[in-house]
């Protein structure tokens, strides 16, 4: 596999970038000012993670691409994020459920990556883990609040769960990239990742009085560059300046 590490970094970085983008769409429109600030905080953390990851990815690739080149100047098929994170915000319920399903994966993921044989990944994971712990606490609390709030909020957050469940399955997509990185210790001890995620998700959903959907279909594609229709519009905004005014400093 040619440059499995680069490919893996794109998966990690694109998840952060695209979810960070989605959350930034909330800025100025949150349900209360406190949540406006909280969602922007999440976005800032994720954009920061993407920056460090792409910076390193550019070095690993060795073609002289900067973090901005990787963030702004690829075509849709070259983005490797989960379909989950490009799903539209819709309302606060969908946004929070999307965040929760993602945080419940990223926290145990970073807990493992801090032991990576790759020192840069270990360092990025250590910093990101601190942030992600807070993110998970925030999204878990809101899932519980909305699930165990009013009838309307319960229905909305249950609908969000039903809607997003099949996308969550892609979190555990694996291919030759993972196999190679596991073999050389870049990805240590990934076997129990899914069961950690299950434990977190079940505990929170139970407290939130929500029901896990019985739909077991896995909607995959993002990790291979096959996206939903939404990514094109995200990129149209994200890349606008870099495409309209190429090769300029900002």
């Amino acid at each position: 596999m040619e440059n499995a590490l680069f490919e893996y970094l794109l998966r990690l970085g694109d998840d952060s970038l695209i979810l960070g983008h989605r959350l930034s769409e909330w800025c100025g429109h949150g349900p209360v000012l406190e949540e406006d600030i909280a969602l922007t905080n999440l976005s800032l953390d994720l954009i920061g993670q993407a920056t460090s990851i792409f910076d390193y990815a550019g070095k690993v690739e060795g073609k002289g691409r900067s973090e901005d080149d990787l963030a702004f100047l690829r075509f849709d098929k070259d983005y490797r994020n989960l379909l989950l994170v490009e799903r539209p915000n819709v309302d606060f319920g969908v946004t929070i459920m999307r965040q929760f399903l993602f945080d419940a994966y990223r926290k145990p993921l970073f807990e493992r990556l801090v032991h990576s044989s790759d020192e840069m990944i270990a360092a990025i994971a250590a910093k990101s883990l601190k942030e992600t712990k807070y993110h998970l606490r925030h999204s878990s609390e809101w899932v519980i609040r909305l699930g165990d709030g009013t009838e309307e909020s319960h229905n909305r957050i249950q609908d969000a769960l039903n809607e997003l469940w099949k996308y969550a399955a892609e979190i555990f997509y694996e291919d030759a990239v993972d196999a190679e990185l596991k073999a050389n210790g870049v990805l240590p001890d990934m076997d129990s990742l899914k069961s950690d995620w299950d434990t977190i998700v079940h505990a929170v959903l139970e407290e939130a009085t929500l029901t896990i959907p019985d739909n077991n279909w896995k909607q995959e594609g993002g990790r291979k560059g096959l996206h939903t229709e939404h990514l094109g519009f995200i990129l149209a905004e994200l890349q606008y300046m870099q495409r309209a005014y190429p090769n300029m400093e900002w």
């Binding site: 600030i37 922007t40 920056t51 901005d68 963030a71 905004e237 300046m241």
Partner: peptide, 22 residues
């Protein structure tokens, strides 16, 4: 924010608008 020209400008602008909320 969603159209900021690079990652650094995006982060700074996000932080600034967040300050205004504060």
């Amino acid at each position: 924010i969603t159209r900021a020209p690079n990652l650094r400008r995006k982060a700074v602008l996000l932080a600034k608008v967040q300050d205004e909320a504060g």
